[in-house]
């Protein structure tokens, strides 16, 4: 009797207990299918109007006509990138066991996350400004779209996987999962920064 009860509830139990896994795997699959199919092209063509509009906004007009303003914003974009990078390195190095082994990981992670969020906000706002100024150019650059892909992946990964996971008692999590999360996070954020730099070269 007890067996049949367990069997009858199992589908609901599976969905309920693996909701996050199923959602994330579905999302990853959707992104991959989108990225490697013709759907990407359709959306890309549709987005052209939006990028043209970006150049006509205040940000776009200032960015295009006032080179010095663009350069200053660019410098602050880099400074915020350094701050964000510092927070990512400290947190992920702690997860890998390379830094502050004597300080509770949770302490390092929480404090690093605060710095990360500040860095992210500045990077995003300066980034949007810059994107408006050169919207007509970046639209045509594959590296810009790779950067957006990496950036979206990074943000979703941090807020929907990394933070919720690391909020738990770290001792309960398998050590290699912790290390995998750290490596993935380092890889994503370094890629975001590197592809960002390449936008400048690719457009010139």
């Amino acid at each position: 009797m007890s067996t049949s009860t367990a069997m009858s509830t199992s589908p609901a139990l599976t969905w309920g207990s693996y909701r996050r896994t199923i959602t994330s795997v579905a999302l990853v699959l959707i992104v991959l299918v989108f990225a490697f199919s013709s759907a990407r092209r359709v959306v890309w063509v549709d987005l052209y109007e939006f990028f043209l509009w970006m150049e006509t906004t205040w940000f776009g007009v200032i960015g295009k006509t006032w080179g010095a303003a663009f350069a200053v914003v660019e410098a602050f974009h880099l400074l915020a990138m350094a701050l964000l990078g510092g927070a990512v390195f400290v947190a992920d190095f702690r997860l890998l066991g390379w830094s502050f082994p004597d300080v509770p990981a949770q302490d390092v992670l929480d404090k690093a996350h605060k710095v990360f969020v500040v860095g992210l906000i500045v990077v995003l706002s300066t980034g949007i400004f810059m994107a408006c100024g050169v919207a007509g150019k970046i639209y045509w650059l594959p590296v810009f779209w790779y950067k957006m892909l990496a950036l979206m992946t990074g943000i979703l990964f941090v807020f929907f996987i990394k933070r919720p996971l690391l909020n738990r008692d770290l001792d309960e999590i398998k050590p290699w999962v912790v290390k995998l999360v750290a490596v993935a996070s380092l890889l994503v954020w370094i890629t975001v920064a590197a592809t960002g730099r390449w936008i400048g070269f690719a457009g010139s």
Binding site: Y18, R20, T21, T23, S24, V25, V28, F157, I161, K162, P164, L165, R168, I173, K174, V177, L180, V181, V183, A184
Partner: peptide, 9 residues
């Protein structure tokens, strides 16, 4: 969470 982190990671 661990399974999701592994898959995405």
């Amino acid at each position: 969470l661990q399974t999701a982190a592994t898959a995405v990671g």
